[in-house]
Amino acid sequence: MDDTRNTADGTRNTTDGTRNTTDDTTGTLDEALERLHSSGPERNGWLSNHGPMAVEALVRHGQAPAVHRWLDHYSHKLEDMPDPATRVTAQNWHEALGDPRRIADWTAYFERETAERPWRDVLTEWWPRLLPGIAAGATHPVIRVGHCVRTLLTGEATAPRITELAHGLGYWAARHQPLPALAPLAPAPTAAPAPTAAAALDAVPPVPEQEGGIRDRLAQLTAFPVWPQRFTDDPDEARARLVELVRAATHRFATHGHGEPIMLVHAATAPNAVLRTLPALPRALWVPSLGAAWAASAAVTAAYSPAGPAPYAPANASADELFARAAAHGDDHTIKFTDTALDVGDATALAAALRSIELNPPAL
């Protein structure tokens, strides 16, 4: 089995110590992003355009030859970028935050910002502004940003990749959605606080009405378990806890993904997007990033978890074999979740990736 782990800059270490940055030298990723940037980030009202995230994962894992064919199949789901309304500026951005009618305005704003300043400076300025709205668009905007930042950190900062960051940040700003005010969920008198991320996810109470879309479900949230147990102001400890959270949420899909296999992938892919972004951010932002990632993962868990676990089988396949299966399967969520599972890289994570291939309907 290919034993891989997240590293501090978002690349992956393999068992022989080499680093897999998989920067695309074929130009396929940039071609695909250019195809996608004429489209808006949503369709059918507010369903997300997963194209940029999926093609980045495909290229990263050696599936560049399949990218344009995948896009050809996916293109019927794309809609044009909405028309602009009113220009977003440094003076009026507060009133435009969270207004989905301003998607084109926000995208244009970030295109200007990233053209005039280094992309890391733009990201650093806006990350703390956007982080409270991490639930925006069912967490897809932060996931899109995480895929883009990974590419910028491990490869060349080409014009299509910078534009992709502008699109991701613009989508997040337009769909900015803070969670309801949440109280800490006190443990039962005889129970100890959850000692691990896995235990904390198990302790997340489901929302009362398990019906409707994610916005209806998130509106029912009232409290989460307190995790980590001890508040930390140490960036390195915060990152370690974030790695733990991504692992726990990925593992949990193996046993609980049957509850809602499309939506529950985000309990892992959203915090992993935050983890991928940390190396591009000042260390002072790592602790609040952990808090937001926990809120996002717990919110998705509360909204969609089933009543109980189900058995799963081991993958009995290498990481490369599993990703090739995900690529052939074609479902965008399956591709992205398998990408995250390979970041975690252990046997349970690979089994979870196989579970996503089994549970989600194929798209090709």
Rank of each mutant, 00 (worst) to 15 (best):
D236G: 06
G155T: 00
L290R: 04
A240S: 14
R241I: 08
S356L: 06
A157K: 02
G137E: 05
R252A: 14
L130T: 05
A292F: 09
A353N: 03
W106C: 00
L342E: 01
E156Q: 11
Y312K: 00
H73W: 12
E79Q: 12
T26Q: 05
A115M: 03
R247N: 07
T154H: 13
D105W: 00
P118C: 12
D332M: 10
A327S: 14
D72T: 10
P141M: 02
A157F: 03
H147K: 02
R150Q: 15
Y109F: 15
Q91C: 03
A328T: 15
A192T: 14
A303Q: 05
P362W: 11
Q229E: 14
P279M: 13
G291Q: 13
P195N: 02
F224K: 14
D234A: 09
R117V: 00
L218W: 15
A315E: 01
A166S: 10
M81C: 01
A183R: 15
A303G: 13
A267Y: 09
H76C: 10
R239I: 07
E164G: 11
A198P: 02
A85P: 02
E113N: 01
W106V: 00
P180S: 07
H258F: 07
W46Y: 15
D332C: 05
G212A: 09
P205W: 06
K77M: 15
F231Y: 14
P132E: 08
L169W: 04
A326V: 09
L169M: 12
A157V: 01
M263T: 11
A57W: 06
